[in-house]
């Protein structure tokens, strides 16, 4: 069951408190981080790995990295969630690639491009389309998911989705703008 979201106006204070505890290497920070961010980050890990067991390992590894690299976080450059998202996303992508390398080694394929991400991982039927994002057109969602959850560069997304690079760029921008509108609407509706 998802934990209740904290009241929006309290979020910045909670975030600041967690960051202070993290910087002081106070272990209470991890408990608070887990309570407030684990669900969203676990969702990210599942989206990237498409494997709940692997996603659990990813989440655990990511939290250990967050703890060990807390001193590297700069609140001036990114929100806490942005930084957490990047750590989880990178850990998950590494785990997927590691598993792919292992699988390839086991079947002894000749393909040496270990960074190649099979097209199947981007197949629309594998994308977990949630109700919250239903309002977003598929063409934007595919691009955003490829970049946010598959760890692709824009060029890789262009190649894999078979759409021009310029289109990837514009769909990312427009998609994010559309998301802003959608989430803005949700926030407005929730606040009514």
């Amino acid at each position: 069951m998802l934990k209740p979201e904290p009241t929006t106006f309290l979020k910045p204070f909670i975030e600041q408190h967690i960051v202070e505890l993290l910087k002081a290497q106070d272990q209470r920070a991890i408990g608070l981080l887990y309570d407030h961010y684990a669900d969203a980050l676990f969702g990210v890990a599942i989206k990237v790995t498409k494997d709940e067991a692997l996603a659990q390992d990813v989440l655990q590894d990511a939290f250990v990295k967050i703890w060990k690299n807390a001193h590297k976080y700069d609140a001036e450059k990114a929100r806490l969630f942005t930084w957490l998202f990047r750590v989880v996303q990178n850990t998950a992508i590494d785990a997927v690639r590691s598993r792919q390398r292992k699988t390839k080694k086991e079947v002894q394929t000749q393909d040496s491009n270990v960074y190649h991400i099979p097209t199947t991982t981007l197949a629309v039927e594998h994308l977990d389309i949630q109700a919250h994002a239903d309002g977003l057109e598929e063409k934007y969602k595919v691009v955003i998911d490829a970049l946010f959850f598959q760890g692709m560069t824009q060029q890789e997304a262009s190649d894999e989705l078979n759409i021009p690079l310029g289109t990837v760029k514009s769909r990312l921008k427009i998609g994010l703008r559309e998301l802003r509108k959608l989430f803005g609407l949700v926030i407005v509706l929730l606040s009514l």
Binding site: L41, F81, D128, F148, R180, F183
Partner: peptide, 18 residues
């Protein structure tokens, strides 16, 4: 700032109970 908020909102829309 808006892009970061969007990212958080978008990612949160896929939240799964950890």
């Amino acid at each position: 700032i808006e892009l970061q908020e969007n990212l958080e909102e978008y990612a949160s829309s896929y939240a799964v109970a950890a």
